[in-house]
Design a protein around this nucleic acid. Sequence first.
DNA 1: AAATGTCACAACCGCGTCGGG
DNA 2: ACCCGACGCGGTTGTGACATT
Length: 321
Amino acid sequence: MDGRKRMLCDDMGMIKKGPWKAEEDEVLINHVNKYGPRDWSSIRSKGLLQRTGKSCRLRWVNKLRPNLKNGVKFSADEERTVIDLQAQFGNKWAKIATYLSGRTDNDVKNFWSSRQKRLARILQTSAPPCSSKSRKNKEIQVSLLDGVPSLGAPEFSMSTEEESIIKSQSCSSSYIDDSETIKMVPLQGLMYPSSLNFEQSPLQLEFTPAIDKKLYEQQLQLPFPQIPQLQPDYSLPLENQDFVPRIGDPNFYDVFGQGSGSELGTGQLPILPSCFGPDGGFQTACQGENQNNVTPDSFMDDFPPMDIFDHLDPLPSPSQW
DNA sequence: AAATGTCACAACCGCGTCGGG
DNA sequence: ACCCGACGCGGTTGTGACATT
């Protein structure tokens, strides 16, 4: 459907839809100035606007309300907050928005969905065509991963058929074909860049704030099994912990190339590094069980439950601002 | 320069909740 | 207790701008 056609009035009901004009905004603002942000329906009943109360409310909340950060991109702090809170509350955008001054639920929602799409695309383009069912598999893999960062987000569900497809696939997360070298990102490495155990890595990778492209590609070539073997122990040798981007560090996302336009840029770390403590250090609670034989399946099984976020510092409530 | 892809944003829709009559 | 309108929320879609090929 052409959205722009919706801007025409609903002929019979004379309900106007579509983009707002400056005059309409003005009328709405005047109304709010007089009566406050309520009685949205009366705007139409009084004949002030041919918009539904719902539409008026939305316009006010999302665009006209004072102190909105319209047209301002999410800062790294805001991104981090959204990611933290999304993990905590799930898709409670209105709730999350209350923690971000000047942001609306719509803003947060849009930010998150863009981010999800971006991640999905990254993972999709890097997924291997393991079989003739590759397309379907890609979708499964993407949705599987989509479920990971969200945690509280829509539950991941898979048909038994899809499940069996995944299980029957013995694809490693990395493979090489004739034309392109890199096909799939080691999932742990992408989601938990810090979980790469550099000490044991055959490549002796250095983790530098601006990931060298070549180096990054080398990381991608690590066959999947290598990563799980290394990652269950989230602790790093002390000397390597310095490489760990800290969740509280303003440059946390910069580590992955924020602003560089790289695929791992702004806020694209797909998941809150759940083993970071409030101070950015690792939580030993994440260690222990399931240290062996991590497969893509068991990875999902092993994925920390929601309550792992309990250790997060309580964020200031809006009333504290 | 044109075609295509991606992103951010605005707006609508459907559904659930709440409160007043 | 029930109905109904108002409101709030989350999901979805469409569009324009910009980037890339």
